[in-house]
């Protein structure tokens, strides 16, 4: 069982985000592994383990040859990675990203399953997994909160507005997993040391045959205006001195909801 996991290396979400002059996200700080992706990595490791063989390969698109987030996932136990790092990819949109990652899946070869998060924590378009599946010509089982593999099939519980659906398809297939699908492991010291020497295959968009389909030009969209949202009127804040509940009651009474 060979599993490919899409991972994104993103600016630390605890630091307020900023845009560059060209309206791309400021990615100058050292990126980290998107926490949303740690669930897919853990899921992949567990599935390969349960299958009794095979390996987990990471694929990632990141500027400046960034590998710090990849090393975290390699330290968790992934075997190797493909990293697309290329100036030409700056400004790439969701469809362009899906094209790059689908080509990476083909470059890795022999994948039974591709796992991705439902959306990244910095861009949160939420379309890349299904776009990749369409490019690969595969079924996409999206928004999975439980994943099982048996007899060449993958069965998931797919999150819905009202509960969940049980959805099944044959492999190879792509599955997007929600946060919380499994509890991600912490890398061990041994894992961290081993990760340093694991292979990272660094390629460009041209190597993947995607010249002209990535970057701002491929995105075919322009940003016509950027402005700060009007701040919400600051409200009142009180230390609870035993009258907190009374203050809430008065507030609700004033709105005539009680």
């Amino acid at each position: 069982m060979n599993v490919v996991v899409c991972v994104k290396q993103i600016p630390d979400p605890s630091v307020p985000g900023q845009l560059e002059a060209d309206h791309t996200l400021d990615r100058s700080a050292k990126p980290i592994l998107d926490e949303s992706d740690s669930y897919g990595v853990e899921m992949a490791l567990q599935l390969v383990d349960a299958a009794g063989g095979g390996e987990v390969t990471l694929i990632s698109l990141a500027p400046n040859g960034e590998v710090s987030g990849l090393r975290t996932a390699l330290a968790m136990g992934a075997a190797k990675a493909v990293l697309v790092s290329d100036e030409a990819c700056s400004g790439t949109d969701a469809l362009g990203t899906a094209k790059v990652l689908a080509k990476c899946v083909e470059r890795v070869g022999n994948a039974d399953l591709v796992l991705a998060a439902t959306e990244s924590s910095d861009g949160y378009t939420g379309t890349v997994p299904a776009q990749m599946a369409e490019l690969l010509g595969w079924p996409a089982l999206t928004f999975a909160k439980k994943v099982e593999i048996a007899d060449g099939k993958v069965k998931i519980q797919r999150q819905t507005e009202a509960g969940y659906d049980v959805v099944e398809a044959s492999l190879p297939a792509l599955v997007s997993v929600t946060a919380g699908v499994v509890e991600p492991r912490y890398p061990s010291f041994k894992g961290i040391m081993a990760a340093k020497s694991k292979p990272v295959d660094q390629v460009t968009a041209a190597d993947l045959g995607l010249e002209g389909q990535v970057g701002w030009a491929g995105a075919r969209q322009a940003i016509s205006n950027v402005e700060q949202a009007p701040a919400r009127q600051a409200g009142e804040k009180f230390e609870d001195d035993g009258t907190g509940a009374e203050k809430i009651v008065a507030f609700l009474e004033n709105l005539k909801v009680i």
Partner: peptide, 21 residues
């Protein structure tokens, strides 16, 4: 959930970018 699935697959079939959120 279904809306994102539909727009994603359609964007590949028609080769169009998506604007989301």
């Amino acid at each position: 959930y279904d809306g994102r699935d539909a727009i994603a697959r359609l964007s590949v079939k028609l080769d169009r970018p998506v604007l989301t959120n």
